[in-house]
Design a protein around this nucleic acid. Structure first.
Lengths: 256, 256
DNA sequence: TTCTCAATTTCGTGG
DNA sequence: CCACGAAGTTGAGAA
């Protein structure tokens, strides 16, 4: 299955050997140690010595994490080229990228840990964005926005853009529906207004509905002025609509 | 100094114990194993079983990496709350966040590796953006743009915005200098033009210099029409100016 | 290759 | 707390 090598407190030379083997075998390398980091490229950065987690993936991506914060402090994308050597009592790892030309140098002066892993992962990742969730839930059950709505078409192209959903209400009026995942601003109102005005030129009466969890103050003013409608809907409720399996976890069970 | 625990092929129960200890002791946890991942929140995602690297930092940030690609496949920011338990032969780790309400569930059905590390990192990170690099290099050696230039002030506030550098040329004329890290477009020319026009209303003759590696076609036309100047300068050259230590690395030394 | 645009964008800063 | 803008933005899809 998955072969594995893990070294605790390796010497610089042991780590260098494992590094070269790992890179050539396209393994994942996880190196933890005290290092400084220098970056030159589109920008330039410096970070003095401290303990960090350095990961090199099997496609050549480099990711360097400090013990805190979500984002890596430095990185290099897939396809980067590597060079490593021991010099003046330090293990130096350099990642190089052409176009744009960029280089990262990691200088380890001590190593806590090195893992060289052969991982298998062939699953396909499926992501549904908030607006996709809202639209899906709305199409499944339009009454979460207004009773009697019927969806006529989705992703309808018009000159002024792409209408999320075109509907007919219980009185037979056309309704343009625009979804926003988070608090909608003036731009969203203007977008909806454009769609509505374009359809109104075709003669029929047209309603415009902005579906979002909330509105900014200016958007609220503008939506009234333009005689459009705001329909409150949260992503959370949409997820509930889509998940018939109602799984619940008590928040009190979580530890900070 | 830094205490450390590393387990190879731990049982689910061993891993669970190490997890709880690590989280309460604010250590960094690195867990490698075969898992599936479910995310609910602003969006929704699913990823079937495969080998991944799961990192929990000492501030509660969660980062999940596949063996390839720069970006994590799933994550949860600092301050997240954790819950872990063994159920149906799986180790389940859940990360929870309020506001926005989001949850990630990682279901491990086998574990390759778990490290629990106490890392020290108090260094301060310094990042210089491309435009900062250009400005720094220019202030250090203005002749890289034009001989005889003298910098009068930087980040000078005027009504129309923020002038990067205000200079005087070898003939005593005022020169407004605007930096762009990459190919400059019409907007950059307009910005520079605004500054120059504002200063010209004060009576004196004013030059306008757009310093960038290149210009778009329309920007080139416009800059001539407005009688402004384009000065070619790349970030790469600026880095060379700033680095008196002329370190060179042969590209041929890098391995893909 | 280049661009255009969305992102669970993140992350700052100013009001 | 919210609105606005930049980022070493990254990444995907189209021209």
């Amino acid at each position: 299955m998955s072969s594995k090598i893990a070294l605790e407190n390796p010497s610089l030379e042991e780590a260098l050997e494992a590094f070269k083997l790992g890179v050539s075998a396209r393994r994942i390398l996880i190196i933890v140690g005290e290092c400084r980091i220098d970056y030159f490229g589109r920008g330039h950065s410096e970070l003095d010595y401290g303990d960090r987690v350095v990961t090199i993936k099997n496609d050549g991506a480099l990711i360097i994490h400090r013990p805190f914060s979500l984002e890596p402090v430095n990185w290099q994308p897939s396809g980067s080229m590597y060079r490593a050597y021991v010099k003046n009592g330090s293990l130096i790892v350099e990642a190089y990228r052409r176009r744009p030309e960029e280089k990262i140098r990691v200088t380890f002066r001590s190593l806590l840990f090195l893992a060289s892993l052969n991982l298998r992962d062939y699953a396909s990742f499926k992501l549904y964005t908030s607006e996709e969730i809202m639209k899906k839930a709305f199409i499944k059950r339009p009454e979460i926005v207004e009773k009697g709505l019927r969806v006529v078409s989705e992703e309808k192209k018009v000159r002024s853009g792409l209408i999320d959903c075109l509907c007919v209400d219980s009185n037979g009026k056309i309704a343009v529906v625009e979804f926003k995942k988070s608090r909608a601003g003036v731009d969203a109102v203007e977008q909806l207004s454009n769609y509505v005005q374009e359809l109104r030129t075709r003669g029929s009466e047209v309603r415009g509905m902005l579906v979002a969890p909330s509105l900014t103050r200016e958007a609220g003013d503008k939506i009234k002025a333009l005689n459009l409608e705001f329909k409150r809907l949260s992503v959370k409720k949409c997820i509930k609509v889509l998940e018939s399996t109602g799984e619940t976890t008590k928040i009190s069970d979580f530890t900070s």
